[in-house]
Amino acid sequence: MRIAVIAYDRISPFMLSTPLAVFAEPFLRSEYRVDVCSSALRLSASGGLTIEANLSLEATHDADIVILPGWRDADEAVSADIVAALLAAHARGAIVVGLCLGAFGLAEAGLLDGRRATTHWSRTQTLKARYPSVTVDAGALFVDEGQVITSAGIASGVDCCLHLVARMSGTGEANRVARHLVVAPQRAGTQPQLIESPTLGSSANRRATQLLEEVRADPMLAPSLDALAEKAGMSRRSLTRHIRARTGGNLGTWLKHARLARAQEILAAGARGFDDVAIRSGFPNAHALRAAFRSELHLTPTQWLARQRLG
């Protein structure tokens, strides 16, 4: 699997490092080759850094995945050579990814027309106004439209790249990489970009986080909010507030995401029989499992499995 990461003058070192941190580390079990490509081999970067790219943009021509990690300014047009590289990659069937403001490059290439997409929350209205044929999801961390993927701002690029690992190599491998990176493996694309977090060191926040981790470890559990509140020694209202601050939603939504992640792990490991997978991941039946896949991933379990095999 060959991945081309496009660099450009005045790039953010953090944005450039995001796909490299996920795909270019030695602990990754799958066979990925990652190349940094640019129209100029010597680039300036923010923070007074200078970056030397090893390949020109022509190296994107045979990549399986082409990633544009951000762009320097939403009010500045993405350069024509980068837009052309994205368009050519898509035309020959490569997966094209725009992290953060990189979505503007995909939109300029026409790759987001008639599709859902996202970008940094502060620039979603700009994207919507400039490209009215794009359905902008201002809340999502990332949006997977099959051959075209976009992510929200800055750190959500890690979630997007981990999602790509899950598509190519399975959820288990994505979660293993996430543990190496010391980031949460369960952040779904539908999780809101903006979450008001409580004080990290507060006792109540630690108890709420511990409860969620216990449930995530065994999503077959079906605890009520009252039972969890009693276990945490908190009122129902207080626990609800802490869960919303921690996850951006309510207990039911978070639990569905945790069960969906477990179902993906089980399916990726080779399990068959959707009723059995549903029960083992905490869903009442295969119908509920299929409904969760459709609502959260816009795919049936069979379609999701087909993508894993293709990867």
Rank of each mutant, 00 (worst) to 15 (best):
I65T: 05
H257L: 13
G139K: 07
H90A: 12
S79Y: 08
V66R: 02
A258T: 09
R241M: 11
A94R: 01
Q147P: 04
A292S: 09
E52K: 15
T124P: 08
V158I: 12
F27A: 10
D275H: 07
R33V: 02
I95E: 10
M220E: 08
L106F: 04
P192Y: 04
V97A: 11
S30F: 03
G47T: 04
S202D: 14
L297K: 05
I51A: 09
P19N: 06
D275L: 07
R33P: 04
S38D: 00
G153K: 04
A138Q: 08
A91L: 11
I6W: 00
N175D: 15
P13K: 03
P219N: 02
R10K: 15
S12F: 09
S238K: 15
S12H: 12
L43A: 08
T50C: 11
V36D: 03
F283C: 01
C37L: 04
E145I: 12
P219Q: 01
L181C: 05
L181A: 08
T60A: 01
F283R: 00
E52M: 13
H120K: 15
V136W: 07
E58A: 15
Y131D: 08
A217S: 09
A261I: 01
T240A: 14
K128S: 12
A129M: 14
I65A: 05
Q147E: 05
S46T: 14
T240G: 14
